[in-house]
Design a protein around this nucleic acid. Sequence first.
DNA 1: CATGAATGAGGCTTCATTCAT
DNA 2: AATGAATGAAGCCTCATTCAT
Lengths: 200, 200, 200, 200
Amino acid sequence: MSTKYELFDDLENKKARLCKAAVSIFSDKSFNRTTVQEIAQKAGVGKGTFYNYFDSKERLLSFLLDCGTVKLIEYVKDSIQEVMEPRDKLEKAIDSQLEYFNKNHDYFVFYLREMWSYRQGLEEQIFKLKEEYITIFENIIKEGEDSKAFKNVDIETISSGLFGMLSVASSHWALFSSEFPLENINQSVKEVFFNGILRG
Amino acid sequence: MSTKYELFDDLENKKARLCKAAVSIFSDKSFNRTTVQEIAQKAGVGKGTFYNYFDSKERLLSFLLDCGTVKLIEYVKDSIQEVMEPRDKLEKAIDSQLEYFNKNHDYFVFYLREMWSYRQGLEEQIFKLKEEYITIFENIIKEGEDSKAFKNVDIETISSGLFGMLSVASSHWALFSSEFPLENINQSVKEVFFNGILRG
Amino acid sequence: MSTKYELFDDLENKKARLCKAAVSIFSDKSFNRTTVQEIAQKAGVGKGTFYNYFDSKERLLSFLLDCGTVKLIEYVKDSIQEVMEPRDKLEKAIDSQLEYFNKNHDYFVFYLREMWSYRQGLEEQIFKLKEEYITIFENIIKEGEDSKAFKNVDIETISSGLFGMLSVASSHWALFSSEFPLENINQSVKEVFFNGILRG
Amino acid sequence: MSTKYELFDDLENKKARLCKAAVSIFSDKSFNRTTVQEIAQKAGVGKGTFYNYFDSKERLLSFLLDCGTVKLIEYVKDSIQEVMEPRDKLEKAIDSQLEYFNKNHDYFVFYLREMWSYRQGLEEQIFKLKEEYITIFENIIKEGEDSKAFKNVDIETISSGLFGMLSVASSHWALFSSEFPLENINQSVKEVFFNGILRG
DNA sequence: CATGAATGAGGCTTCATTCAT
DNA sequence: AATGAATGAAGCCTCATTCAT
């Protein structure tokens, strides 16, 4: 994964530090139990400096969610760009999402926790992005159906379901275990999602 | 679904009203943006009364999450109690979770949002319960592996993954759509989870 | 002056105490240098209590200015109600404004200081009221012109000018002197305003 | 009015620009709601530059009030210097104050708003100056009384009252009207102040 | 001199919780 | 048991001021 996909690494130094500090604390406590003070302190800057980079604490949240989703979308889209077969595309997309999670544990513990919070308020954009991400799955599955590679299923259900399967399984490991058996997760999910859990 | 499984219906009148009011507001805003005032008001009681039934706002959250998880566990466990075959058990469990979600939309929008928040603090119990629920899946899948009905997969991954698939697909419909096509969701998830998305 | 005209005396106990505390401090420092903390403390209540009675510190200011202007208008209007001759009316109005100032030194030191602050923002109403007060003078003077008792002058100029003369002269005494020679002020202003400063 | 009396025009370039920017903003918002940032920006300099010319925001206020009062005093004193008769002197003084207001609308809107704020703090000097200005009126009136041109009145009351009459009438026009009928104001004030409002 | 990023003291406001009635 | 006025700890944010460049 080149710098292009590194969360925050293309931001100004201080802004990146603030983002990283925030994510690190948010993955431990929740957004609401974290104070701006703490974030600034962890980033090694003054409290006022925070407000040179973000309009408010809420906007930081919005920015972080946005940022991660945009990068994830970029990353996954890039990874499937030159793949032709729907099945291969879906494999690649699964690989990519899991890799991405694996590269950014803190971020995704935070992400999974806070992504559900945004239904109303200013930040409808988050929802749009989450939808845009799931749309990647939807498009691949639709393509697979058209080419008779995949069965006819309810595309919305299965796309969001796949996203849920990957996210929750990843979180499960991130939250409850010290290891993150990327390969196992990858293989098990793919095996079941492509061929089902039934033997023979 | 008998009263036994109805959330809050076996509580004292006012406590039940407070729970229902809370869930209704929480599904709209998040826990943190909801005030005790609002909950009491919606329940039609005074603010002080709230504290006759709950030690604190946090304890209400804990109680609600707990309550829903316990009932879900009861409900699913009861539903599979007399089923013998692992595959039938898993089908039944999937049916039950989806039914349960369907009966309690507000609750599960809230549940999905807040369940991730609890890692530290007093409320480890929530985690235990969530784990206990996933353990139901784990046990069924283990049984299925033992009887050669199911393939060998990473059980933790696939159990939490199934939970994620069901939860996120359900939420997807609950959040983004006015309808909730229970039967479609059920069939699509089962078809993919049991047989995979690949045709032939 | 009956209770009817007493500033704040017809408010709830705590609200009145907060108003009185605020005015007392505002007359010493300015609004901006006074904290809500101080006001609450001087009123003998908790800081949070302040917000049970006023939406914000700004709204307190608005309320205080409003309140004083309304009462002044009431007081002056009542005092001239049964007077027929324009000259007598104007005398009575001058008497009343000076009496009112005299009864509420703190308030008017505060009033004169803050009344100019409100041009934009929510509180256009203040301006309307100040205008409404000056309109009392305008109407009397117009009447006096019509009945040939008064000369033809620019009514807006002379009405606001009279208000300024009374206000600034009163403030002068309130700010720079320990005494407030009500009678002297009254007589001197009237003598000059009615007959001019020129002898003979 | 030669440069001698132009506010700020004999200051260094940047200092003058800062003063003008400040007055312009202050006449719109109040001192307290204006930030140093805004002033610097409007003056077209950096925020740090502000502090090369003024020790603090407070000192700017002090300087502005001071500056305007000193110039006003100079201007009025100069204008009456060669006038002999008290009545003519007073007329000239009134002319001058009104001219001065007219030349510096923004400044006087600001001045009238902020002049009352200074009772304690470092800036007693402001009060002294305001007093010094009113003393000009006091001296003329005293002289007029001695020469029997003027009646015996309470000199402090009438001097501050005249200042108030001129200031508030001027502000009235500046704040509430797009025009400033200098001649009308001048004539009406003089007519009333010298001869009274009563006809015959 | 000029700048503007960095700072943190300080103030407003919210809201969970208490308690007298 | 029920209430809601009272409380004050806690947190977000502003902005005057500093200082390295």
